[in-house]
Amino acid sequence: MARTHKRLDGLIEIWAHLRREPLGIVGLLIVVLVIGSALLADALILVDPVKLSIRDKFMPPSLAYPLGTDYLGRDIYSRVIAGSRIAMTAALVAVSISAGIGLVLGIASGIGPRWLDYSMLLLFDTLRSFPVVMFALAVVTLIGPSLTTIILIIIVISIPLFGRAVRTQTLTLKNSEFIQSEIAMGASLPRLMGVHILPNVLGPIMILAAMEIPVVIAMEAGLSFLGFGVRPPTPSWGNILNDGFKYIRNSPWPLIFGGAPIILTTLGFTFLGESLRDVLDPRLRKES
């Protein structure tokens, strides 16, 4: 009971701060909108997003087709809505898995022996030294383009981000007087991790995750745009752009409305993440 109370208080406090950040509110609205459309996609779409009607191709926005149609006469509005589900799935799955792995590696690196710490750092540095897109393309060639591949790539390249942040946080905590005295009193490592370190690194991880989601969305859309992501005709935002790019001279609408949700969503998550960071953890501001 007391616990729920505390959590509620925390949320109320965050909200109180967030209310004063207009940009954060805008971000929150966009995020809610996108998540909502991902959840309710089936109810929101007007027609089957993969249904062709060649006669209606390259239509500008109209009552029947609010955002126009593409080169196969598919309804762009329905495709955009359906695409939000793909984008959010990729983002949430990839970010939570890489945050999880980063958490474990970061804590291990922070409290483990020296050699482990060094090898972890080297691993993080190495993973970060690949130019992301090139690396992704190489992986796609190997295991073939699919949503799973994209998620896998994103996981690998995001691990260093979370790992490093958790490591720093763990090290600071480990050297704090209070943990040192617990160690001196013979507290076991797993207990220390579970009771003290884990709760303390969760906040920063949440913020980083919110900031990483736009990166993931951009990555998914980018790879799909290149034709190495989600297989057509599945309506991913990147695929809408790919089609629009091919027929750029026939109709601008697929490009315009395929790009808009990507820009909106990345901006939304970023604005929200920025405000949350300012509210929750002013210390983090300097690190990134």
Partner: peptide, 26 residues
Amino acid sequence: GILSVAFIAMPAFVVGLYALLLFAVT
């Protein structure tokens, strides 16, 4: 400040596509 955040967040390829559409094609 808002512009800076927006520039950072927007995926460059979408910006590129819009630029292509506006300045080159249109």
